[in-house]
Nucleic acid binder design. Structure first.
Lengths: 112, 112
DNA sequence: AGGAAGCGTTAGACATCGCTTACACATTGT
DNA sequence: ACAATGTGTAAGCGATGTCTAACGCTTCCT
């Protein structure tokens, strides 16, 4: 089962439909049925996707009468972003060190 | 089924064991059994995780005799990173615009 | 040649995912 | 009170994911 915050965020984002949903509610609040209207799948399917996004902290919900207004919550991506950035940066830094060890900056005297 | 590069990368990274594997091969090449030695699950399970990581382009393999040397391939994370960064930045930018519209920067003449 | 070492692959069990259909529940409008 | 609207939830189904046990293929060593 999905456990950590990162697992939840990465898992949520790995689904194309959910990424599209995120884009839909990135700049505007939208109702559940408005969102569902953009897809071919049934409304309950979207409702379930919204549940996954909400539990992952990637969207917020606000009740307004019988409507439920969804909106993206970018902070939910923080941990995932940081993990990726850390991994990426450390990895490339080490690659660089390695390359420079194997192919040192050209020194005329080394005669490579 | 997983289709795009992003789907594959995000899906691969959503698994805690696979993230640990990535860390193990981030700075050093490691053999499959070396990697498997760090986990409680059986070696075939790890071999399958390595398969997922390889198909997602997150690791490279190099055969050396009967050994298979794995190593992280950070470029495999590029698309995912860019999507996250774009989403994050655009989202926050719009939030800022909105806040400033609802609570304009204090102007003495506006008498808020 | 023959055994051991290092790995991948397959088959099967079991959980989880993404979907649909059907239903339940609250809010709004008459 | 009653119907319509907007939505979540439950049940069930096929597909996919993760694991183990068993097997097969190379490569190395004697």
């Amino acid at each position: 089962m999905v456990v950590s915050v990162m697992d939840a965020a990465a898992h949520a984002v790995a689904e194309p439909t959910r990424r599209e949903i995120l884009h839909l509610v990135r700049d505007t609040e939208r109702t559940a049925s408005d969102i569902a209207g953009h897809f071919d799948v049934t409304r309950p399917a979207i409702s379930q996707h919204l549940g996954v996004l909400r539990e992952a902290g990637l969207v917020t919900v606000r009740a307004d009468g019988r409507k439920r207004l969804y909106r993206a919550r970018p902070e939910g991506l923080t941990e995932l972003r940081r993990w990726l950035d850390d991994f990426w940066r450390t990895s490339l830094r080490n690659l660089k060190v390695e390359v420079e060890r194997d192919h040192p900056p050209t020194d005329p005297r080394s005669g490579e």
